[in-house]
Design a protein around this nucleic acid. Structure first.
Lengths: 206, 206
DNA sequence: GTCTATAAGATGATAGAC
DNA sequence: GTCTATCATCTTATAGAC
């Protein structure tokens, strides 16, 4: 399983054949089919296990965050770490293969849900007392963040300068949320009125 | 070239072999190597041509936009159209293949740059008179938007509900930019002070 | 469980007829 | 320019020895 993930991380999904994976693991190619039926089956089992481990590794940090700024910090550390260890690249490869392979689609869904569920719980808790809750849906924000990570990873492979520019810009936009989060009650009401005026048909008014 | 792109759009990069493409075009497989040397060479030529056409199709709309709200509307229409016709999926596939194939990397870079250059020009023009210019870099924002499109496309293949939630949430965040864009001079100054306080070490102070 | 051997087929790419 | 034919190599997957 380790060899399978390392192959995808380093050489991409296209290079992840039974033979190349087996060679890296220094075992015979036939063993993959004996234990996992198909190559995709191996990738799914390996990915699920790795995701469970990674998510568990961040559970405490998520639960311990006490403000959106805290959570943003955890998110940055997470992104940095998971990117460096190649897990973001791994996910991007699995997701691009998911289009044609239902087993990879299931594995990708599992991975994405594991992360976003965890993030959404933390967001829900922290947004409860914040005016930002009026602006965004926690599950939607978690999904957007996850999709952004994947997109940035692919972008980075094609235009590294562009990717870091994008990341920096998103950082300054996140500050905007931060400022709104810290707003006093008067400013909150003013903002809410402004947002109401800016044509938003999709939220019921209390 | 049309057959090549349709194959990637519909069946993914992994299915885009010389034989499958040639079969779709109802020509002989050897012709691909005669005209384009390699399969990647064909994909690059086809992608470059398609990108040039698509970008040209939106040039007027970009140039004609007179506010950030306008531009956001153009962006939404663009995303909707390019997603429906499969061009976003195509890009995501090329970018995921770019990791291992330098020709696909070059093609992806060309495509991404063609779009972001166009968007950045429009943003530069519109941000000139807006307080948002203090917040974000136009090139960085263009990159972030492009990366977001790609990420959302992959996400959509794995969790369609999550992808639409994410898109909706991003829409409500965009409204925040909209509100800041419409701020009067007093509110602008207040916001700028708030942002200054929110620890931002990466921008020189005038 | 791990191996060898092998089947059955797909792939990129080229040579050469027309 | 387009084709047929072909090579060498890779692929997933299985049968069967140990």
């Amino acid at each position: 399983m380790r060899a399978a993930l390392d192959t995808v991380r380093e050489d991409g999904l296209a290079a992840a054949s039974a033979r190349t994976i087996a060679a890296r693991a220094e075992v015979n190619q036939a063993l993959i089919f004996y234990h996992f039926q198909t190559v995709s089956g191996l990738l799914e089992a390996a990915s699920n296990r790795a995701v469970d481990e990674s998510v568990a590794h961040y559970r405490e940090a998520f639960a311990g965050s006490e403000s959106l700024t805290d959570l943003l910090g955890v998110g940055r550390a997470l992104h940095d770490r998971e990117r460096r260890n190649g897990n973001v690249a791994l996910m991007a490869q699995l997701m691009s293969g998911a289009r044609q392979d239902p087993v990879l689609a299931r594995a990708s869904h599992y991975a994405v849900s594991a992360w976003t569920d965890e993030i959404a719980v933390a967001l829900d808790r922290l947004l409860a007392t914040s005016p930002v809750a009026d602006l965004v849906d926690s599950a939607g924000l978690a999904d957007a963040v996850a999709a952004g990570f994947i997109g940035l990873e692919l972008y980075d492979g094609v235009d590294p300068d562009g990717a870091s520019r994008a990341l920096e810009t998103l950082g300054s936009l996140a500050q905007l949320i931060d400022v709104v989060d810290g707003l006093g009650p008067v400013a909150r009401r003013a903002l809410r009125t402004q947002l109401g005026a800016a044509s938003r048909p999709n939220r019921s008014r209390r």
